[in-house]
Computed example of a mutant assay.
Amino acid sequence: MTARAASLRRSRLRSGGGTPVVGTVTRGTTNPNRLRRMDRWIAAVHGAELRRAADPVAVDLGYGAAPWTAVELLGRLRAAAPRTRVVGVEIEPARVAAARPYERDGLSFRHGGFEIPLPQRPLLIRAANVLRQYDEAEVAGVWERLCARLAPAGPGTRGGLLVEGTCDEIGRRHVWVALGPEGPRTVTFAARLGSLDRPSDLAERLPKALIHRNVPGEPVHAFLRDFDRAWAAAAPYASYGARQRWIRAVRGLTAGWPVTDGPRRWRQGEVTVRWEALAPRG
């Protein structure tokens, strides 16, 4: 039995004969404030879309054994778009039951998986550390399913946003892919700069679509190699602090890579690159 067939079989077994719940149970490990870097980026780049919507809904998919990340997402998004509602979606029913006491205005929890059991299409789906246990071959199908559930693009809107990525246990290092209804758009690298010896330290947090591609001949490997070289060239700026060194290194990267953001985001310890530049070969 293939990994995909086994995954779908487990999904059917968990559905109880009703609407299939698609996916498998994750380890559920989570920590407060773990996803702050991702949330901060979402609020900055997607806040305008949330503000324009009459009823903006965001999904925290696979929030884990405790609902901290969904609670925090509500607060951070409402600072940018006060009407936003957050729905935490978990495939393990016991986790949903444990989260229910935390429900409040704008925050609710539901049992479900990649099918996203909401009547409307959300403007945001955040899936952090969810696909790490899946096979690389399964990622494209999951992305396609989730992107199909996003709010569609239309006049004056790019539609919903799927943010899928991986971080360490306390959120110091994080890499995520942002996707719209049309598919993948960008890859963002984010870090607490004091935790890095070199930018390629972020390789261990590459999302599933890229982590096995960090080998010679693949674009993501070339990007991290060039980033390390730019970091080394920016060593004189270290006397001004890691932030100034990072900014200088990213500025050097722009000569050869399609960096989509600017110094305002770089100061946060971030850099975002177009997906096409890092997409796996073949």
Score class of each variant (00 low, 15 high):
residue 133 Q to G: 04
residue 22 V to I: 15
residue 70 A to W: 07
residue 149 R to S: 13
residue 21 V to H: 04
residue 204 E to A: 15
residue 124 L to P: 00
residue 240 Y to S: 14
residue 204 E to G: 09
residue 42 I to H: 00
residue 249 A to W: 03
residue 240 Y to L: 14
residue 130 V to W: 04
residue 101 P to Q: 09
residue 158 R to S: 11
residue 173 R to P: 02
residue 25 V to A: 11
residue 188 T to I: 02
residue 62 G to R: 04
residue 65 A to D: 14
residue 6 A to V: 13
residue 210 L to T: 03
residue 116 I to L: 14
residue 260 T to N: 10
residue 153 A to V: 05
residue 256 G to K: 05
residue 163 V to K: 04
residue 118 L to R: 09
residue 194 G to V: 13
residue 204 E to P: 01
residue 13 L to D: 12
residue 275 W to E: 08
residue 228 D to H: 03
residue 101 P to S: 08
residue 159 G to V: 01
residue 159 G to E: 07
residue 52 R to Y: 03
residue 45 V to H: 07
residue 191 A to N: 12
residue 257 W to G: 08
residue 272 T to H: 06
residue 259 V to L: 09
residue 259 V to Q: 05
residue 48 A to F: 02
residue 257 W to S: 11
residue 134 Y to W: 13
residue 174 H to C: 15
residue 230 A to W: 05
residue 253 L to D: 06
residue 85 R to M: 03
residue 263 P to S: 11
residue 212 H to S: 14
residue 111 H to K: 01
residue 280 P to I: 03
residue 61 L to S: 00
residue 205 R to V: 14
residue 279 A to K: 09
residue 271 V to S: 04
residue 6 A to N: 11
residue 83 R to K: 14
residue 20 P to R: 14
residue 101 P to R: 04
residue 102 Y to Q: 04
residue 1 M to W: 15
residue 137 A to E: 15
residue 26 T to M: 12
residue 106 G to Y: 00
residue 194 G to P: 04
residue 102 Y to A: 09
residue 273 V to D: 05
residue 203 A to Y: 07
residue 104 R to E: 07
residue 260 T to P: 00
residue 282 G to I: 10
residue 71 V to R: 14
residue 144 E to Q: 13
residue 160 G to R: 13
residue 149 R to E: 11
residue 250 V to D: 09
residue 215 V to W: 05
residue 252 G to V: 03
residue 148 A to C: 03
residue 147 C to K: 13
residue 33 N to G: 07
residue 251 R to G: 15
residue 112 G to W: 08
residue 38 M to H: 01
residue 157 T to H: 06
residue 206 L to P: 02
residue 189 F to D: 01
residue 31 N to I: 02
residue 28 G to V: 05
residue 232 A to Y: 10
residue 29 T to Q: 15
residue 79 A to D: 12
residue 229 R to G: 12
residue 40 R to W: 09
residue 258 P to E: 07
residue 231 W to D: 01
residue 279 A to W: 05
residue 120 Q to K: 07
residue 193 L to T: 02
residue 255 A to G: 13
residue 197 D to H: 08
